[in-house]
């Protein structure tokens, strides 16, 4: 049985930038342990010397010129997606430092 310690769970929640109530934490930890137990069946297989498959297109480096492309959107069009959090063509965020 996989056991996720409180410390590990807190770390994973933190790096995921999420918040959970204590009750939610208990439930999600159980769910994850359950899923990881299922995933452990992979270890029945000997994969020594097997190359991992990270992509299935067989495409090699696809290059383009390092030039401004006219099909890209204008800045102001993109800024509209930030809604009211825009001032002087900049996206507003709370104080960083």
């Amino acid at each position: 049985m996989t056991h996720i310690t409180t410390e590990t769970l807190e770390n994973v929640i933190s790096i995921s930038a999420l918040e959970f109530t204590p009750a939610e934490k208990e439930r999600v930890a159980a769910d994850i342990e359950n899923i990881l137990d299922y995933i452990d069946q992979m270890n029945e297989l000997d994969t020594d010397g097997v190359e991992p498959t990270y992509q299935v297109t067989d495409l090699q480096n696809v290059w383009r010129e390092d030039a401004v492309d006219e099909t890209l959107l204008a800045r102001d069009e993109l800024l509209k997606t930030a809604g009211e959090n825009v001032t002087q063509s900049q996206v507003k965020v709370p104080k960083v430092l």
């Binding site: 590990t8 929640i13 930038a17 999600v28 994850i32």
Partner: peptide, 19 residues
């Protein structure tokens, strides 16, 4: 924002992925 914007299944998958 993420806690309010995602449903439970989104969060579960993000946590498994981060793990």
């Amino acid at each position: 924002s993420r806690t309010a914007g995602f449903v439970a299944e989104n969060k579960r998958r993000i946590l498994i992925g981060s793990y």
